[in-house]
Nucleic acid binder design. Structure first.
Lengths: 250, 250
DNA sequence: GTCTATATCATGATAGAC
DNA sequence: GTCTATCATGATATAGAC
């Protein structure tokens, strides 16, 4: 059995697949081209030949999935609006269109599955500027259209408020995907694949939470969180100053 | 003016302060000890002398803030339960105690301010295992107690459901703090400091969203997201196969 | 397209003088 | 406690044979 038989795809695709997985596992800065080319069993120089460099590889990894996602999200919203007879779609349908499309990708290995969900969940807060910039650019058009759809669907809610809630929904979703499972509830997809069944249950829970948050009453601008917030904003820190006793030796 | 006059604190604290800021800005892997010691105007070897290494420095940076946060969160919950006359605190009060305490730190420079909020927001999804492990360890006791408080406050909601919603709330909060401002609503604290006024407005909005999500109806286990989800989980990807023409030269 | 070999540089850590 | 000097390692990227 040749080593090529172990690898279903060509060099370029193997690099993309392994890169995607390792970028998730170790982060962009924590992943070296040697790690990628080693696992993909291709030559070190192949990355530079096919993509032009490490950043360009990351860009290709993200775009491969985002192009599909953007297209799909646009199409689903198109259908939603077309089915409305001139009426704007209901808010929960828009939530479903935007976030359901994403979560659904987790069940589809051809679309990156859980690996991609985790990658996208973490990329929003990447310390690497070019990653955030790329995401902003790739998301801009679609997010703008969905934001407008939410605004149309919620005529009584101020635009600013809608935008914030969109941001909160993105956060809740991204974290559920990025998976810091220290709450012991988080989906264990360290073992590579999350069963379709579990993904569906995650989705139904997340969906319920998001819609609940979206429908929350408009906050009172003058609300002052009485206790906790005020305490924390005025407390003094116990700096790592010398131990009690004024610095005198014991 | 001596260079020491520019730096209010001792070497150890200067390293912690600069480290905290740079770890946020460039991530753990993207920050070198040379960057830190350079900005802090201390010797390169000082980090190893005072902390023992890069990982230990990160640990010290996190613990300096988390110790205070844990203590405060415990105290606030103590008071809440003491004031209840045997009745469990209302859910929205628990939300306020847990998340309000955190957000309040953003107004207090002695507690790290916005910098620390961003750091903690990003650390949950750090690709570095030791950071997630440290956070899990530091959060375990407090989170366990708050989770129990939520369970007591919501006797009709299944425990699993409560845990998930806790996770979603953490996510929405962390992302609001970690700040990927590509939605144009996100708080601009790249310019270092977020005014107290804005932090309060962020809090009132977030608070409303979190409580809304927490109170959402229990999801139907058998709900199948009709359109978007199903489409995404069965679609086929357009792989990066050779361009149309079968690979023949033009 | 793929490979070897290498250039160039930055990193974390430490040894040892002061 | 602070400094200089240095080590060993691993990084990205490229030149050039095949």
């Amino acid at each position: 059995m040749t080593s090529a038989a172990l690898h279903p795809a060509n060099t370029r695709t193997r690099i993309l697949d392994v890169g995607e997985r390792l970028f998730v596992k170790h982060g962009y800065d924590g992943t070296s081209l040697r790690m990628i080319t080693g696992e993909a069993q291709v030559n070190l120089a192949a990355v530079n030949y096919h993509f032009g460099g490490k950043e360009a590889l990351m860009e290709a990894v993200l775009k491969r999935r985002l192009d599909w996602l953007n297209e799909q999200r646009m199409r689903v919203l198109d259908e939603l609006e077309a089915a409305g007879d001139g009426l704007p779609p209901r808010p929960h349908k828009i939530v479903e269109a935007f976030f359901g499309t994403l979560i659904g990708m987790g069940c589809n290995k051809d679309l990156g599955g859980q690996i991609f969900l985790k990658l996208i969940g973490r990329s929003f807060t990447s310390p690497n500027g070019f990653i955030r910039a790329l995401l902003a650019e790739e998301y801009r058009e679609v997010v703008e259209r969905y934001k407008q759809a939410f605004i149309n669907a919620l005529p009584d809610v101020p635009r600013q408020e809608v935008a914030w809630r969109f941001q909160f929904m993105l956060g809740a979703t991204a974290y559920a995907l990025a998976g810091s499972d220290f709450l012991q509830v988080s989906v264990q997809f360290d073992s590579d694949e999350l069963p379709e069944e579990q993904t569906r249950r995650l989705w139904s829970r997340l969906y319920s939470f998001l819609v609940g948050g979206m429908r929350a009453p408009i906050p009172d601008e003058d609300l002052l969180p009485p206790q906790a917030f005020a305490l924390a904003s005025t407390a003094s820190a116990d700096d790592d100053s010398p131990p009690p006793g004024g610095g005198f030796p014991p």
